[in-house]
Design a protein around this nucleic acid. Sequence first.
RNA 1: GCCCAGGUAGCUCAGUCGGUAGAGCAACGCACUCGUAAUGCGUAGGUCAGGAGUUCGAUUCUCCUCCUGGGCUCCA
Length: 656
Amino acid sequence: MAEITISLPDGSQRSLPDGATAITLAESIGARLAKAAVAAVVNGDERDLGDSLPDGAQVAIITAGSDEGRHVLRHSTAHVLAQAVTQLFPGAKFSIGPAINDGFYYDFELPGGRTFAEADLEAIDARMREIMKADQPFVRAELPAAEALQVFADQPYKCEIIERVSSGAADSDDAGEIGSGETISVYRNTPEFVDLCRGPHVPSTGRLGHFKLMKVAGAYWRGNEKGPMLQRIYGTAWASKTELEEHLHRLEEAEKRDHRKLATELDLLSFPQELGGGLAVWHPKGGIVRKLMEDYSRERHEKGGYQFVYTPHLANANLFETSGHLGWYKDGMYPAMEMDNGTYYPKPMNCPMHCLIFGSRQRSYRELPLRLFELGTVYRYERAGTLHGLMRIRGFTQDDSHIYCTEDQLQDEIASLLDFVMSVLRAFGFHDFTANLSTKDPQKYTGSDENWDRATEALRLALEKYGLEYKIKEGDAAFYGPKIDIDVKDAIGRTWQLSTIQCDFNLPERFELEYVGADNARHRPIMLHRALFGSVERFFGVLVEHYAGAFPTWMAPVQARVLPVAEAHQGYAEQVVEQLRSAGLRADLVDANDQLGKRIRAAKLEKLPYVLVVGDDDVAHGTLGVNPRGGEVERGVALPEFIQRVQAEVASDLRS
RNA sequence: GCCCAGGUAGCUCAGUCGGUAGAGCAACGCACUCGUAAUGCGUAGGUCAGGAGUUCGAUUCUCCUCCUGGGCUCCA
């Protein structure tokens, strides 16, 4: 019997009988590997374990515990979901069902316009487990398009995909389903159930099982708002029971830090129904944190060479005609107020007003870069279904700056901006940054190609110079210019897009902004839009989730709570509070009406940085019992020493 | 805007197959005066999101509106 030779990732080689498959290879290496195997990479392509290996192939086994392996498990589980739904809902059409982060989904159209309810998930889950127990094989076949159309004759969405692929009009969505070769690949589980798929898949459904169906949702076919709305089922799937449980646990942990939940629990702010959707009121505790954020921002901007401006919340419609926003974003603006001297709108952005300030008098090149800064509150009529706590809100405040500079200054200005951005973000406890550079959308842009190229290059060079890791997002820029967005990673590893630096060729043109150059001629400035927090509200929401409500001492609403052990210590406790406050600390006192343990518990639930207990010993010696958040109790600390420690802690938090 | 699920006391929730509601915590009062995560007893608190309809009677059933949550789409 002939033999073939296979190369492994570690460079070693193995001889196997002709016709050997990846699973035979895995078995020859070790039983544990064979057990963990779900697919293989053969000469760079992902393949099924059951495929025979060509002689001389480079082969790597994909195991369930790897990212690629989980992807295979999830995709295979999606097929099982589709089979279960088509069994339970005869006549159901299925469209696409990819693996996604942490899981998978599948989109369906149910007969008679029926929709899924959460309660259906239980039956679907049970049926899926039966299918897995039946250990159905995943059998690959490759068909010519015409034949595939017959196989899926009663599946219009599948036919649409096949037609798009065979006519060469496939996009990335389709390719994920069936690849882009000459033939259409399908995977069959039973005589009845077959699905389009590029693969690879696990050998059989028995290999699956550590999954959970999470939720049902509507989703537009091919993401088209005008197209039909399909019924989507989301699930999560993992290589082992432990992995699945860990994932569910992570979700629970994330839920505990949800800023909307913590905003209520910690009395930070609320969204009264009486106000209308997407509008918040800030309570004193949230208010002090916000004030600290804003004060810090102002201080840094002042030192950073920014000039502070203020602009009104309303403007005549003419302004937004000039800026062009009324033309592009009218649907997203609060409606017009018709007055006897014209039509007014709440402002959806600050930039046009800053342009008015620039244009209010003749400008010299000596003034550039001119950096205007404002905590500017804007109103946008976000569509009802898009609102999300503080993260997507209708009234919000931007830490907005517009920088007018010459082309020569652009690159340095951006580089120093990056420096400024990271430095400020570090003060708020973020240390892991990545960037995105968004480039021109050829379908939708204004300004000359030359300007776009130069500005994009300036942004790119600034990123390189700063040494920040970045990805290019082709075509993701706003219509008026390229931009850099900064993503930060939070305490539990989620990324948030926060800061943005955007070039704008549009507004200087529309507002006919000019400065007089050294050559005594008039020139058009380049305008940069930039925000560090983005929106103060959203940034606050991200901070709440990042810190899980336990704000660092410098921004905690109450830094220290003084608790007298008994009524006899009330007077001393009051003196302590007095001294803490004169030292600039935010302190309060809860008197001895309740038991000490109860008052400590309450303070801990409020996540205060320090609880200070004072009793007989302390009255006698001028000391405190210090109970720090997440630390050990320390008795007999002298008051001045405590103050000094906290001040040092605050100073060190803010050193960035 | 679209699909699904919701809205009951300040908070977290239970409940009513149609006869106007209950718990825990919080609040308030009294007693306890306590050294590091829940003392005991008592009191008060609700147009059951809002409106319309069906009904002898609606918090419960139907419809509409508002708001919230999960998605889709969108995000200057």
